[in-house]
């Protein structure tokens, strides 16, 4: 985000230089054509803009989609179950949610991997025993960790949503390439179409369409990528108002003080 903004600002400042170089060098600065991802259409997210805030019911539904579908391949290794209290769950609910997960618990006497029910201070770690197992199970590709995905994924939430809903209805694996999806780099992704109608049952009886599931899980992942964003914005408004008030007082004080000074 920063890179893009700085880049556009700098481009503006040095537009003349760019124009000059374009005239001098012509086709030299034209980049070779690649299968660039299609630009995702903008969505109206609840958390969008400097004053947005997360739609917590959607975040919770998104957790259901993540736990029911995404978690079979993807991890949230920086997130602990206890962090989920911030999306509106009580500690008891978090304990109950954690208990439905199995996590690795060392080796038993014969050297086999043991598992136990997760506890609130466990991370939402990968379901594979290691990257090799993940690679073997997914045709040579390790499913990425999703802890910061909306922040680090170029295109952010819009592109994530577009990718999840961007498969053709009859998508099939093309050997060596993956599944066709115009929002992926090179227009192919290794991820099979993850969502289908009714794949999860929402506790609040929202109809689980593919679009709804994609929308909810994207909101959940955006929340996971910036869990304190709502608090951050609230602090900003409070601190901003306080500083404005203080600044007005000091403007008055400063004017009074300097009014006695002859220029």
């Amino acid at each position: 985000m920063r890179g893009q903004k700085t880049r556009s600002a700098l481009r503006f400042c040095t537009g003349g230089m760019l124009l000059l170089s374009a005239i001098v060098l012509g086709p030299d600065i034209v980049q070779p054509v690649q299968a660039q991802p299609v630009k995702a259409p903008e969505q109206n997210w609840s958390f969008k803009g400097p004053l947005g805030h997360f739609d917590l019911p959607s975040v919770q539904r998104g957790y259901a989609v993540f736990a029911g579908i995404c978690a079979s391949c993807h991890s949230l290794s920086e997130v602990r179950f206890s962090d989920l209290t911030d999306m509106g769950l009580t500690l008891e609910e978090v304990g109950a949610v954690a208990a439905t997960w199995q996590v690795a618990d060392g080796l038993d006497a014969e050297g086999r991997l043991k598992h136990r029910n997760a506890r609130p201070d466990d991370a939402l770690s990968s379901s594979y025993s290691g990257p090799e197992a993940a690679r073997a199970a997914n045709g040579g590709v390790v499913p990425p960790d999703l802890s910061r995905i909306v922040q680090v994924y170029p295109g952010g939430a819009d592109r994530l949503f577009a990718l999840l809903t961007g498969y053709k209805p009859d998508a099939a694996r093309v050997p060596g390439k993956g599944f066709a999806n115009s929002f992926a780099i090179g227009h192919y992704t290794a991820m099979p179409p993850p969502l289908r109608e009714g794949a999860v049952k929402y506790a609040d009886n929202t109809p689980a369409t593919v679009t709804q599931e994609a929308r909810d899980v994207t909101t959940f992942l955006a929340w996971v990528s910036a869990p304190h964003q709502d608090t951050r914005r609230r602090v900003g408004i409070g601190a901003g108002l306080y500083l404005c008030f203080l600044a007005v007082l000091f403007v008055i004080l400063n004017r009074r003080l300097w009014s006695h000074v002859r220029k």
Binding site: M1, R2, K5, P50, R232, R233, V235, G236, G240
Partner: peptide, 8 residues
């Protein structure tokens, strides 16, 4: 810091 952290 609070509204446009993407700048930095």
């Amino acid at each position: 810091m609070c509204f446009w952290p993407g700048l930095i």
